[in-house]
Design a protein around this nucleic acid. Structure first.
Length: 224
DNA sequence: CTCCCGATAT
DNA sequence: ATATCAGGAG
């Protein structure tokens, strides 16, 4: 029988809060100024930018919204927009028919039900067309200072690689992370994970050799 | 589960 | 050519 090669597992590392704490310390060192990368001036612009960010880089969203927010300002403007015109403007972000339709529909609701102001609770936000839990948490965390963990593609991927949770379902993962991350850090944690997911631990080729989280990461240890 | 979908890196 | 990008709805 072949001697088993040593492969560290999540159980063999520091587990639970202790390991997460070390990851948080490293993340804080790497990204002390981590914040929302989307450019916006108010909750409405952030909501729209976040809807546009689905399956699209924030860099491209910011290019599109630069012109978009120059042309339209209030919820009323988007509620009354010519849909074809909006489609053309958001086309580079992909899914442009859905996104244009959702932005217009959401702004109609905001205009009629909320007097033009974006609502500030999770329950109200997720009722808006095109606004799911992730988008709602981005708006709450950055425009309303309500702590929230955004389980986007980066947070899901890194959480799995780091062994922070076995759940890949966004909602279950969100609750798992809320259990182990201090509530005051929820929004910042999301931003730091996203920065790291872009800079080092990207999906195509995670750069473990240059990752200072490697010794606290189940994937990093297993691929040493 | 599938569909929506353009732009870029590999 | 294929995978991926701050997802959401049916």
């Amino acid at each position: 029988m072949e001697p088993k090669k040593f492969k560290p597992t999540t159980q063999q590392m520091e587990d639970g809060p202790e390991r997460l704490n070390k990851i948080m310390v490293e993340l804080e060192k790497l990204y002390p100024d981590a914040k929302c990368a989307l450019v916006y001036k108010n909750p409405l612009e952030l909501m729209i930018a976040t809807i546009l960010s689905a399956q699209c880089t924030d860099v491209r969203v910011n290019i599109v919204t630069k012109d978009l927010f120059k042309k339209y300002h209030k919820a009323k403007d988007f509620a009354e927009v010519e849909i074809g015109e909006l489609e053309e403007m958001v086309k580079p972000t992909g899914f442009y028919r859905n996104k244009a339709k959702n932005i217009k529909a959401a702004c109609i609701v905001i205009q009629e039900k909320y007097k033009g102001k974006v609502p500030g609770t999770l329950e109200e936000l997720v009722e808006l067309p095109g606004v799911g839990r992730k988008t709602a948490n981005v708006v709450l965390g950055n425009a309303f200072d309500v702590p929230g963990i955004t389980t986007d593609t980066h947070v899901i991927r890194l959480s799995r690689l780091m062994g922070l949770s076995s759940n890949t379902d966004p909602v279950r993962l969100e609750y798992d992370l809320m259990d182990i991350v201090p509530q005051k850090q929820w929004t910042k944690f999301s931003h730091m994970m996203i920065y790291h997911g872009r800079n080092i631990c990207n999906a195509r080729k995670p750069d473990c050799d240059n990752c200072s989280l490697r010794k606290h990461c189940s994937f990093g240890l297993e691929t040493e």
